[in-house]
């Protein structure tokens, strides 16, 4: 993969994830404000889960390129972005587990208030992890790019 292709897919990966988090705000708000479970609340939950899973998959696909071509330069100068990237990948994994878990709980137990509350907490914790991931991702993307050797920048 050349640097331009990597940068393009990394950008798509980040934008899709942010869009997914924005969509996830819909069920988080409606589950709190409405007494029952609206049809669109369930739909947007699954759309958000898919929009979180897809960039996660893209991240998996991009990871070997990052590891082979971007990480060595960051490690050479011990750039803080190296460690922020590590936190980002950990939080992304937790985010996906919580959001998909929350979507399944809402689908299978969303008729009851207890089920909706459990789903809300899973989605809310997933959203928190996702927003933190996105914030770290914006920072990392601003400095960690292939084609720009960190050692030359020093």
């Amino acid at each position: 993969m050349n640097p331009e292709t990597y940068a393009l897919w990394a950008s798509i990966h980040g934008h899709l994830a942010v869009l997914g988090l924005a969509v996830l705000a819909h069920p988080l708000i409606t589950l709190r404000r409405r007494p029952g479970l609206a049809r669109w609340t369930l739909r947007t939950t699954w759309i958000a889960a898919a929009m979180v899973a897809l960039p996660f998959g893209l991240g998996w696909w991009l990871y070997p390129t990052y590891r082979g071509h971007v990480k060595p330069g960051l490690r050479a100068i011990d750039h803080p972005a190296l460690w922020r990237f590590e936190s980002k990948e950990h939080l992304a994994a937790a985010c996906l587990a919580l959001v998909v878990g929350g979507a399944v709980v809402l689908t299978t137990a969303g008729r009851t208030a207890a089920g909706r509350r459990a789903a809300w907490w899973l989605l809310a914790c997933g959203w928190l992890a996702g927003v933190t991931t996105a914030g770290l991702g914006v920072y990392v993307a601003s400095v960690a790019q292939p084609g720009w050797d960190q050692r030359e920048a020093q």
Binding site: A94, V100, G101, G102, V105, G126
Partner: peptide, 9 residues
Amino acid sequence: AAAAGLAGA
């Protein structure tokens, strides 16, 4: 599903 989500994290 709730247990699985938490167990994964």
